[in-house]
């Protein structure tokens, strides 16, 4: 019973702390520090100010759409055998004609 009363007293004393709390003052340099942060961060932000997130997103969407179109509209049958053959000969990619001093 006594302990219960003790606990209630302590709880009450803890709540009473709020009444005894004084206002805390901000440090005298707060304004200067904040002004410095505000206007130096603005300078940092001004690098490429025209490249806004909206524009970045637009460019990203355009790239994705172009890739998608290129992927879906390229018809593999349209690349002729002759064209591949020419490419292989021009760049000497064929295994058959390979010649080397070390062979």
């Amino acid at each position: 019973m006594k302990t219960e009363k003790n606990i209630q007293d302590k709880v009450e004393q803890t709540f009473n702390v709020l009444e005894a709390m004084d206002k805390a003052s901000v440090s005298p340099f707060f304004k200067d520090q904040t002004m410095r942060r505000l206007f130096t961060e603005e300078e940092k932000q001004n690098v490429w100010p025209w490249f806004t997130p909206k524009l970045q997103f637009g460019i990203l969407v355009a790239i994705v759409v172009l890739n998608f179109l290129a992927f879906t509209q390229t018809d593999s049958d349209s690349i002729s055998e002759d064209a591949i053959e020419d490419f292989v000969t021009t760049y000497e990619l064929s295994d058959e004609d390979e010649s080397s001093l070390f062979y």
């Binding site: 803890t14 702390v17 709020l18 005894a20 709390m21 004084d22 206002k23 805390a24 003052s25």
Partner: peptide, 16 residues
């Protein structure tokens, strides 16, 4: 570290 709280109330304030 609350400048508006006196030392004797520090423990109770922290609990609160």
């Amino acid at each position: 570290n609350h400048p508006g709280i006196i030392l004797e109330n520090k423990e109770k304030s922290e609990t609160l």
